[in-house]
């Protein structure tokens, strides 16, 4: 199972790098979504894949009973997903604004902040 997830992570990263190398910033964003999912899976698999019940403590007990899954990576992944969601929403709005104000989605054409030649006048 670890090997399968490792391969999945590899494929995700490869696909996202391909997308992120594109000049179109929208493709870049999609690549970013893929690679952030790859990172989340990395955390998930780094916490060891065990077959176990949800780590909930039954009523009346002092601790979880029997084999339970490691809850920490799940908490980390959840936090990372939430943060990633916020960043993605922001980046998407930014790209939209870029398209409507700069009129392009191609990173090669975005030279307003750094003009090719220094304006001498």
């Amino acid at each position: 199972m670890e090997a399968l997830i490792a391969i999945t992570i590899g494929v995700l990263v490869a696909a996202s790098v391909y997308l992120m190398l594109a000049r179109n910033v929208l493709r870049f964003i999609f690549g970013l979504v893929l690679i952030s999912n790859a990172a989340n899976l990395t955390i998930f698999v780094a916490g060891r894949l065990t077959e176990g019940a949800p780590p909930l403590i039954p009523v009346g007990a002092d601790g979880p009973v029997g084999d339970v899954a490691n809850a920490l990576p799940q908490a980390l992944v959840l936090t990372a997903i939430v943060i990633g969601f916020g960043l993605f929403a922001f980046a998407l709005v930014l790209m939209f604004r870029a398209y409507s104000t700069l009129g392009t989605l191609y990173s090669d054409d975005m030279r307003i902040a750094e003009p090719r030649t220094e304006d001498k006048t």
Binding site: I43, A46, A91, R97, M110
Partner: peptide, 28 residues
């Protein structure tokens, strides 16, 4: 600002992802 912002956002997001993966591996 939008132009500079795009470069700032994209490169920083990549660093964030690397940081996150590093945390995962270190935790493992």
């Amino acid at each position: 600002q939008i132009d500079g912002g795009i470069k700032y956002v994209t490169l920083n997001l990549i660093s964030t992802i690397l940081f996150l993966s590093g945390i995962g591996l270190l935790y493992g």
